[in-house]
Design a protein around this nucleic acid. Sequence first.
DNA 1: CAGTGGTCTAGACCACATC
DNA 2: ATGTGGTCTAGACCACTGA
Lengths: 255, 255
Amino acid sequence: MKRSHPSSTNRIVPDAPPSVPSAPLYRQVREDLIRRVLKGEWGPGAMLPSEKQLAQDYGHSQGTVRKALMQLFDEGLVIRRSGRGTFVASHAGQYKPASFHPIYDNGGARVVEDASLYVRCERIAAKERVAAGLKIAVGAGVSQILRLRRSGSRTAVVETMYLPEELCPDAYALVRRERPQSLYALLEQAYNILITDVDERVRARLVTDDEAALLEIAPQSPVLEIERTALSLGGHPVEWRTMVCETSEFYYRRS
Amino acid sequence: MKRSHPSSTNRIVPDAPPSVPSAPLYRQVREDLIRRVLKGEWGPGAMLPSEKQLAQDYGHSQGTVRKALMQLFDEGLVIRRSGRGTFVASHAGQYKPASFHPIYDNGGARVVEDASLYVRCERIAAKERVAAGLKIAVGAGVSQILRLRRSGSRTAVVETMYLPEELCPDAYALVRRERPQSLYALLEQAYNILITDVDERVRARLVTDDEAALLEIAPQSPVLEIERTALSLGGHPVEWRTMVCETSEFYYRRS
DNA sequence: CAGTGGTCTAGACCACATC
DNA sequence: ATGTGGTCTAGACCACTGA
């Protein structure tokens, strides 16, 4: 079933028409693997077949399959560990798309977040800003989740998250019941949605009175506002959130 | 970036001790190529020898050299065009490590920065915060450079940069004379120092009166402060800067 | 046309993790 | 001991570029 010198006269991987027929083999393999992950063939954290096995299955050389896997690794979809294997990325594991989340104190030491405190979880109608962020219609149903991130006795961040009802029905109730440490881990297990990328925008502004009360800081203090759109594997927005951060005791860092 | 790990029975590229002897061959080749680019062996825009030629020169296989070149391409140090060749990136500024720099207006459109305006370039003694950031002694000589980033008729950022005298002697005078668009491009051409990574920390705070005047905003406004340490190839801090950003008209984004 | 990078193969040996 | 990914080789043919 192999071809010695493919490139122009090549087959497609088993029933995968979406890819351009003339795309390089490793690209076709990459896209088929993405398709299979999306289909749920391997859930988050699951181990993929070995390079050798995949090469055999696809009928291509190991080097070709390897190139596809390395690309998926670079894109963050997959974790590869020497001697162990290749695994679908999972928020339950080490996988985290870059974000500002890590909190450091002003001395530079990393601060452990000891608590995620859920304050409110409810279903509401999307207002304009939320609708724009999620690319849904104004007034569409969304789950709104308000969470505090605490470190020691201080509250460092006030997070407000929005999930579209269409993709994540009853997420507000689920979060209220489960109170997960990681929202993205919950999205994986409950909805089989993998967040692969986040787009973040940063501003400084003055706190609102409500936020000041939650953060236990003086009114009119400056705070950092991070606005995040989280994208699933297919590139569709799944979550929109704002993080209001106190930065006199803490600072935030790219990661 | 990709994974790497040592192999054991390999030689070193011609007289290149700086690299760890046990690093993979393609890594050694990559580092030697970087060294040669920094040395000026090929200027910006110049064509590198072909893969085949380099493979012969280094005494390694074409695949190994190719892997090094592809990595340099991914890092932006080099441009590769099929059928043409491999070229050193024309603007040294093409080698841009991630930063918050890109500025967007509140509508989401990218704002072109039309001007870098140098306000002050002088030699001073490092104060505590600067010394800590550059890992040098308090009181050591540093070049202090104050620059405004303007977009249209508005000033978006006030940048204050510090370069250690030991690594970049008379940088303040050089910058005053050259007024470069990119400081890192200047570091490359004047001192053969390549910035490969930046570490950034973010805070919100109130503007000082001096900054408010430069940014033409009201006193006591909230601003974003980004503190950056720039690291050279060897991982040594070469520059420490603060960027004070106005964020009512603009916002900043990871990139 | 000759030369370049891009793709692909089929092996080899290594370091590493797990059992 | 077995199986995994990581490195490296030495070839092949392709598509594209320019003279």
